[in-house]
């Protein structure tokens, strides 16, 4: 489903060149739950951003569903992300000015769907993460765990085939972290969603199908 070939990412400034990723080759099957681990600064998030088409590699090819994605325009990339990908971030990145329901509806704004359809899909997504009773709340009125569940609802509302989660449990205590992890596992199992998760937590990583380890930008496992 996702294929990365010889991916390299170099960050350049006027004085220094940093190799963030070096010759990464990776194939992820449809329905697979992969976790990526490694020390801070080893390139985990960079890898996830490249997979999510949020950042471009300096070298190498990205294919998703046999479609080469290196040279898409801004508009094509936006459409691809909207249809195929869902994102979960460590710090949730909810829009505090919008209510929970509006936050979850956000990806559907960029599709041809009516407000009624958007509301219905968002309510269903919130139901799946157990937050049906919080639709009219603002993010600032929620706990960290609840915020991350809203972020999951936002990631799944457009029924993407792939979810990319960057340390989704990183800001949560273990109980809340487990809750979020259970939701992701359930999503993977029941709906066959392919999930790639960056984590520092060995315990969480063990629950996934496969573990990839990075060190200094290179794949070590």
């Amino acid at each position: 489903m996702i294929s990365l070939q010889n991916i390299q990412k170099v960050y350049r400034t006027s004085t220094i060149e940093t190799l963030a990723l070096n010759s990464i080759n990776l194939n992820i099957k449809k329905g697979e739950f992969l976790s990526v681990m490694g020390p801070s600064g080893c390139g985990k998030s960079t890898l996830l951003n490249i997979m999510g088409l949020l950042d471009a590699p300096s070298k190498g090819d990205i294919n998703i569903d046999d479609q080469k994605l290196n040279n898409l325009s801004d508009k094509q990339l936006a459409q691809f992300r909207n249809k195929k990908l869902g994102f979960i971030f460590q710090s949730y990145h909810l829009i505090n000015d919008l209510k929970v329901l509006d936050n979850v509806m956000l990806p559907l704004l960029y599709r041809n769907s009516s407000e009624k359809e958007r509301k219905q899909s968002a309510s269903e997504a919130l139901g799946k993460v157990g937050l049906s009773n919080r639709v009219k709340h603002f993010p600032t009125q929620l706990s960290g765990g609840q915020k991350q569940r809203v972020a999951i609802a936002r990631a799944i509302v457009g029924k993407p085939e792939i979810i990319l989660a960057d340390e989704p449990t990183g800001n949560l205590d273990s109980a809340m972290g487990n809750e979020v992890m259970d939701i992701l596992l359930h999503l993977n199992k029941s709906e066959g969603t392919t999930i790639v998760m960056v984590t520092h937590d060995e315990h969480m990583a063990k629950k996934t199908h496969r573990l990839m380890r990075l060190f200094d930008g290179s794949q070590v496992q």
Binding site: L77, H93, Y110
Partner: peptide, 15 residues
């Protein structure tokens, strides 16, 4: 942050 989120979830620069 909002701009980043909107872009990640499918908003093009033009939008």
């Amino acid at each position: 942050s909002e701009i980043g989120v909107r872009k990640a979830f499918g908003a093009s620069s033009k939008t």
